[in-house]
Every structure is written in structure tokens, then in C-alpha cells.
Amino acid sequence: MSALLELRNIETYYGPIMAIRGISMEVPEGKIVTLLGANGAGKTTVLKTISGAMDPLRGTITYRGEEIQTRDPDWVARKGIAHVPEGREVFPFLSVEDNLRMGAFTRKDGEIGKDLTLVYGYFPILEELAKTQAEYLSGGQQQMLAIGRALMLRPQLMLLDEPSLGLAPKLVHEIAEIIVRLNKEQSVTMLLVEQNAKMALDIGDLGYVMEMGRIVMEDSCERLRNATDIQEFYLGMKDEGVRGRRRWKQRKTWR
């Protein structure tokens, strides 16, 4: 198997609540894999389980042939897996530049300065705000910072939790381009969680759909784009007749 990351029967709990109900998935090296799902499907939990912020109760996670499911997050990060967490989680009292440098905390090589320039190249606004304390950034600027910070790790695998959250349409395009570029030029593998399914399916190679802690669909992104369910629920494409009916709470009842 050439999968860079492989999840087998992962089950994760929050106390008594079973959030992930036995999922298996593969992230092949050099690909962009997207993970879709409604609110509360458990996407964030999957990423947290991979990055070591949570431990699964059962199942294995293999990264480059090595089991990582019980490791601490710092160990996982050292292996080259960078996590852009939900809700940004920037260090509010550090400056923008220090935040970025924190991303390179585990690196020993001398190229941190070069990567800093690279990140500033992607997000020029961050360079303007380099000395500002991160808590004063606008929501979208914090999001850019979180992505930039993950890049500073020079990751081989990036776990992106809703990177487009709170970004203006123009920047959503830019982020999508950056993801593709990193993937093509530096062959960074991506696991992308998105509510913006259109963007995710456009740039992704492989897609998984989650519902209530389970994977209910997996296919190439191209085929997912054409599946009717996906179009209706995730791409918001439906004819007006359907819409009129749904006005009266004709919603998925099996939620």
C-alpha cells in the first residue's frame, strides 16, 4: 500500500459520547483528500485524533508504516504532520511573527527565515501586521495566520480544518490555489475538511463523506461532484420546486 496515512476502525469518544464510530480511510501520498460532512458529523474529531490531540479508544492510525494513534501531538508534529485547528487557535498574546516562528518550533534547520518570506509571500497582509499582537487581528487574518503557522513546520501532511472559514471569496480562491500549489510544487499531502464543498471538491483528488461519525461515501472528487445527494446537500444545487417544499421543514429527518 502506498497510503501515507491510513486509519483503520477508529473509534473516538468524548467521555461517554461516541463521536467517531469506527471509520477507516486512506490518504495516499501526494494527493489532496477532502472530508465532507454536516455539522457535528465528527470531521474535527477525526483530525484531532490523527494529530494526537485526542486518543482513539480502538483502531489504528498508520503514518508511513508506523502506528501513531497513542502518540502525543508534539511527537506527531515532529513527524511532519501539521494541523490547522478549528477556530484558529492562534497564540493571542504573541505577535504575528512570533506566532509563525512557533510553527517552526521543532525545526532545527537554518531555513526558517526563508519559509517566513514564503508565508509572507502567500499572505502579504501578515507581513504588514508582523509586529501586531495576534489577538487584534481580524477573524480572517487570524485564519491566514493559522494556515501560515502550519506551513512553517514544512509539513509532509497537512490537516486543514475549514481553512476557508471566515475568508472573503477572493481569499478562498487564493487559499485553494495555495493548497494546490503546495501539493504540486512541494508535494505536501493534504487532508482537507471543508464546509465549502464546492471548493474542496474542485481541488481534491479523493473525497470522503461523513455522517454521524461514520463514513457513508467515498469516491473520487470528480464522481462525488456529480452525485445527486452531494449536489443537493453539500453543493446547494437544487431546482426551485424542491426548495419551495423544503421551506416547510422538509429536511433530512434521519439526522
Binding site: 469518544y13 467521555g15 479508544l57 477556530g87 497564540f91 493571542p92 489577538e135
Partner: peptide
Amino acid sequence: YRKATYKRQKSYLRTERLR
């Protein structure tokens, strides 16, 4: 009762959420 019910998850303090 499952023993895992109260298996403690690692907990990390979240940073201040501001905007």
C-alpha cells in the same frame, strides 16, 4: 457500563477566542 466512558481525554487549554 463501559470502562472507557470516563477514560480521560488529553486536555489542552484553548487559547483565548477573541473575534
